[in-house]
Design a protein around this nucleic acid. Sequence first.
RNA 1: GGAGAGGUGGCUGAGCGGUUGAAAGCGCCGGUCUCGAAAACCGGUUUGGCCGAAAGGUCAACGUGAGUUCAAAUCUCACCCUCUCCGCCA
Length: 426
Amino acid sequence: MLDIKLIRDNPDAVRKRLADRGRGDEAAVDKIAALDQRRRKLVSDSDALKALRNIVSKEIGALKSKGQDTSDKVAAMKKVGDDIAALDRDITATDEELRGILLTIPNLPHPSVPEGKDAADNPEIRQWGHKPEFTFKPKPHWEIGEALDILDFPRATKISGSGFILYKGAGARLERGLINFLLDLHTRGHGYMEIFPPFLINRASMIGTGQLPKFEEDMYRLRDDELYLAPTAEVPVSNIHRDEILRHEQLPLYYCAYTPCFRREAGAAGKETRGMIRVHQFDKVEMVKFSHPDSSYDELEKMVANAEKVLQLLGLHYRVILLCTGDMGFASAKTYDIEVWAPGQDAYLEVSSCSNCEDFQSRRANIRFKDKDGKNRFVHLLNGSGTALARLFVALLETYQQADGSVLLPEILAPYLGGVRTIRGK
RNA sequence: GGAGAGGUGGCUGAGCGGUUGAAAGCGCCGGUCUCGAAAACCGGUUUGGCCGAAAGGUCAACGUGAGUUCAAAUCUCACCCUCUCCGCCA
C-alpha cells in the first residue's frame, strides 16, 4: 500500500511512476486524492463536534451531581450526537472506498529499475557457467522422468487433475533431499533462521503481503473457513511480525522456510502445460528479510547472491535478469529473476525471484521498528525464492542426463540421497 | 464439538456509566548520589488521525464489530481468541 501522504504531497510523481508500470493504475490517483481530501474535511468536522460534546457532557455530569436541571443541554447534545453519527457514517464509507482503492494500487518502481513494457525489456545482469554440451539430443524432463519411473504425470492427473506432480522412488527422494539441501545451505551457510509455517492462511495475512484483495482468483480458498492455501512461504513468513513493533537492533531478520506452494494459475490455461514447469502445487524454499530501510537494497543484492549460490553449488548454468517497470510484481519496488538453463526445453526457466518490497507490505501488515531516535517506522520487507523446486528438478534432470538415459547428479547432493549420485532405470 | 472462566499499556494487575488514556508494581530511559557500580530518591515512559512552521491543540483506541446513553474500559448483542475440564483424535 502506498503512503497516502506521498500521494497527497506528490501526486504527479506518483502518477508518473505508476504509469511506468503500464497497467493504467495512475488513473486512480485523482480519485484517491479527492477521497482523501473529503475524508479529512469530514474528520475535522466530526472532531469539532466531538470536542463540543465532550465538554458539555462533562458539564452535564457536574450539574447532575449538584441536582440541577440539565434537560436543555441533554437535548442539544442529542442533536449533536445525531450529527456526529451521520458524519461518522460518511467517514467510514469514504475510508472504506479509499482503502479499497489503495489496496489495489501496486508499489512504485525504484529509480534504478529500467523502464520497459514486458519481459522482452528486462536487461540481463550477468550469467554464470555455460550451456552444457551433449553428444546426443537432450530429452525433456518428462521423458527422462517417466523412463526412470521417478515422475508419473498420468497418475498425478488421476489423483488430482492436470498440473500436479507425482514423484516416485528416487524422484521423491530427490525432491526431499533438495529441500533439505536448500534449508541447510541457507541456515548454516547464509544465516537464515529456519521456519516451518502453517500452509493455510487467513485473509488478513493475505492482504498483508498483497495477494488480496486483487488476486483472489489466483488463490485456492477454503470457503467454509475463509482460509487460503499459501501460494508462497512469503505470505506466512512475512506475516510473522504483523502488527508488531521490532527493535532496530533486531534488524535485519533473516528467515527461510520450506512450504508447498499452491497456485490456481487462473488465466494461464494452455501455457506450458507439458511436464512440471507450470503446476498448481510445487515445493519451494523461500527467503524473507525484515530490513532497516537504509540497508534494504544491500540486503537485496545479498539475497540474490544467496539464491545464485544454490545453482553454483549444483553446477547449473543460469542468468540473472532485472525486471523492468512493466514486468514487476504487484508489491515489488525492484525484482531480480534468476533463470536456470534447461537443455531439454532449450530455454531458461525462472527458479527465483528476489524482490525488495520496501514498506509496501509492512504498511499493509503494520510491521514497524523503533529507530535510534525512538520513532516508529515501517520496516522494509524482502522476499526471494531460494529456490523453486519443481523447475530446479527439471534443470537437474535435463542438465545431468546421460546418453544411456540415467541421470548423474552433482556430488554435493550425494549426502542427501543416501550416498547415491546416479538415478538409473530398472 | 460440549461446559465454565477470561481478554485493559513492554509485562503483572486495578478500574461505582461522568477530570480514567487509564491506579499500583515490575521493566525500560534520563537525572541526583558514587572513584565506579548497586541500593535509594526524583523525573520520564502506548499508538494513530486531523490542524499547526513550531510550541501546542484536538479527536480516536481498554480483543473485533454493532447497539443503549448527553456521556461507555465500565451496560446489551454478535463474532474472534486464550485458558481449564469433558468428548474426539494423528
